[in-house]
Write a protein that binds this DNA or RNA. Structure first.
Lengths: 260, 260
DNA sequence: CTTTGAATCTCGTAT
DNA sequence: ATACGAGGTTCAAAG
């Protein structure tokens, strides 16, 4: 439980520093609202002038500096960073997050701290359910007819030497079929499938391509049409229905006759 | 200034609700650390079980639910969402962020609030300096010789019917050159240039391709080599130097003899 | 270790 | 509105 959540209001540099050092030592979840400037050195370089921001330090080393607007942090460090706090020569608190590979460094120069809080967040392993590309692929394997009547799947995640094809099988007439699954298929998705087909052709395999997605861009459809690639649009609702029915009474998925 | 930062510790549902409603009405920057469960419906669907999390609500409608680990929020809404707070039938606070296009909804069911804070973050327009693809492109236009001696640029951001070529010009021998600029060039970057070249070829223009980047993947180099595309690696330091010298004494960039 | 592809990617910009 | 490309993308999986 986070009942041990502690906080300090308008701390002096000394108070803030000891608060942060203690929280960092306990690998706590730390919040800090402060007027600060920020400097980043690494894959790029940025210098951010003075302003009010939210700093979040997580136990896994994730480090976020959030500005007053926008989804993305204005500066950050991904998980795994080493976070330290110390005093500068002129008595200001500096919070620093560094990463070794690649070398990156974010430094926050605190000018005035409004509020700092720290505590341990308790979170049980969370069953997070979602409707992803993976779900769509699963639904296709459960009910291949949604792609094309009589189609028959074999290999999934088949390495083609240039990425991997999502699903490979044969259609009713026995022709090899490569299925590429996307949530939203744009041209790059269609190009991906085309790369697989081209590669297979190099191997001497003549194969059809089918794109399955919740939606397609015009570019994707045009690209596909020009290369005789079929586009199958599926509604999320249908996928949900298939997955839910499957969960209630899981039949057997039969994988056979794939490429060998 | 954020001196008007207010906060409440362990508020009751009623206290929390009025705190949030007031803060939302003032379009304040809002923080909330609470035990909660989260539900998302929209482009995907997720259900997140009960746990301690940080909720951030920004004045532009950005909405973030952060878990105890990781760079990315576990649930969110990008800027532009409409955020409301209300009581459920059983007296719990629900915070909801909705977006119209595409329709998306995040609902946070508060079970216990540890700390809530709200205030106005003041941030002057920030001079954020960085070394981007744009910087690299600028450096190339300032000093074309870094790409190839005697090269001569004309059009920039030239529409080719399938995206746009970064820079188009002619080399010393008068051959049309298409330059694609990337920070880190992977295969997809090389493919992009190849699309332009292919398109130009369809138009009857025979052109060379040059990739300029801070670094290349092996795949990109292989792809390029197979198609006689030249790869030019540039050091960030050199770009920084060119840009800094330019800022000190800006000469004239001469654009001439592009394609017409 | 690097490479590849997904993501509720977000965000800007041009059409 | 839609589409395309950039991003310090991050992240996980696979070779």
């Amino acid at each position: 439980m986070s009942s041990k959540l502690r906080h300090v209001v308008e701390p002096s540099p000394g108070e803030l520093l000891s608060f942060l050092k203690d929280a960092l030592a306990h690998r706590a979840f730390i919040l800090l609202i402060a007027k600060c400037s920020v400097s980043y050195y690494g894959r790029s370089r940025t210098e951010l002038g003075s302003g009010d921001r939210l700093i979040v330090i997580k136990e896994d080393g994730s480090f976020l500096v959030h500005s007053k607007t926008g989804y993305a942090p204005v500066n950050w460090q991904p998980s795994g960073a080493r976070v330290t706090a110390y005093l500068s020569a002129d008595g200001r608190v500096i919070v620093e997050a560094t990463r070794a590979q690649p070398y990156e460094r974010v430094r926050v120069f605190i000018e005035h701290a409004y509020l700092a809080a720290a505590g341990t967040l308790k979170e049980p392993p969370a069953p997070l359910v979602s409707l992803t590309e993976e779900d769509l692929r699963t639904a296709i394997l459960i009910d291949p007819d949604m792609v094309e009547p009589g189609i028959h799947f074999g290999t999934i995640e088949w390495p083609v030497g240039v990425g991997r094809a999502d699903i490979v099988g044969r259609d009713r007439s026995g022709t090899v079929v490569v299925v590429e699954v996307k949530r939203e298929c744009d041209r790059s998705g269609a190009e991906q499938l085309w790369r697989y087909l081209t590669k297979l052709h190099e191997y001497g395999v003549s194969a059809r391509g089918i794109l399955v997605a919740f939606s397609f861009t015009h570019e994707a459809r045009r690209f596909a049409r020009a290369r005789r690639i079929k586009c199958v649009a599926v509604s999320p609702k249908r996928v949900m229905t298939i997955l839910e029915r499957w969960r209630r009474s899981p039949g057997r998925r039969t994988f056979s006759s794939g490429l060998t």
